[in-house]
Design a protein around this nucleic acid. Structure first.
Lengths: 159, 159
DNA sequence: ATTCATGCAAACGGTTTGCAGTATA
DNA sequence: TATACTGCAAACCGTTTGCATGAAT
């Protein structure tokens, strides 16, 4: 876990290496994502947070920035079935250990950082002739200690 | 794998047990799903197929039928990130062995019918206090024998 | 000066909803 | 005839796009 400025300059290098600039809007979006690394924010949520710091930004810009970051594999665009795309900063160590526990009671999304798929992906390669470039592993259910009342997140069940 | 009429009457029982009727529209939708069990149809696609047999049906009805079936766990509603919900008949044996290989070249979605998650779900229960009621495991990548030209499906990459 | 990026508002597309009409028990 | 269900069209809402303005080489 590196510090924010360090991470920012790393990503800045990646942007300019591909001919893109780190504009104030992109910088602000990036900071919001860095400060909420565990949150799986929607575009709307990113927009509201970025606007606190850059009040003039439009939501179209947020969408364009997130789309660009997604193409450059800076963020991962994902979908938990609740009708909105969610975005997550993508760090290297996430590669094979980026799984989700999604609580049906309160909607919380917790991350699992164990490598559970490398072996399976090797089998897919040899037995199915399928080369994996990405994956998703999500579990839906409920936490034993979640009673839908004592959750840190607002209690809106993921459909 | 039971025959269509048998499957239909089984589901009919489940419907009436919960106070719902097997209307002609629901029957037609069900038949389309049964006849395309491996296809992961979208609501639009179901609509077009159902209409061949019941030309007067409206798309709102299809959505309502699919939503109902989804609530009753007759179909599974899923999302591959291409902007449309897709629906799949859900049979018992699918429970722990319903995984997808999604080809980025041609968009084909192949199913894997091996049990890869039971063990992991037991660990989630004991180590994380999380009770799994459902899951999804999708692999994105490419088939060795897929060159984007010789695919049975129309070659539109899943985003 | 040219190129890339932004903000605004309108368009888009999949999905849902209100409501009046229809079928079924 | 009471209740559930359907078809139509309009509304909805997250996302994308066209276009004129603005920033930065």
């Amino acid at each position: 876990m590196t510090c924010v400025t360090e991470e920012l300059s790393r990503i800045n290098k990646r942007l300019s290496a591909q001919g893109y600039k780190l504009t104030p809007q992109r910088d602000a979006t990036l900071r919001v994502l860095l400060e909420n690394e565990k949150e799986h924010l929607s575009a709307e949520e990113v927009f509201m947070l970025v606007r606190q710091q850059s009040p003039k930004i439009g939501i179209a810009t947020v969408y364009r920035v997130l789309e660009l970051f997604s193409e450059l594999h800076i963020v991962e665009k994902m979908n938990f079935g609740d009708g909105v795309a969610r975005y997550d900063l993508r760090s290297e160590e996430h590669e094979h250990m980026h799984h989700h526990l999604i609580c049906r009671e309160c909607g919380e999304v917790r991350e699992i950082m164990e490598d559970w798929l490398s072996l399976l992906e090797k089998r897919l390669e040899t037995e199915y002739g399928f080369t994996v470039t990405d994956h998703r592993l999500d579990f839906y259910g409920s936490f034993r200690d979640c009673t839908n009342n004592n959750c840190k997140h607002n209690c809106k069940a993921v459909s």
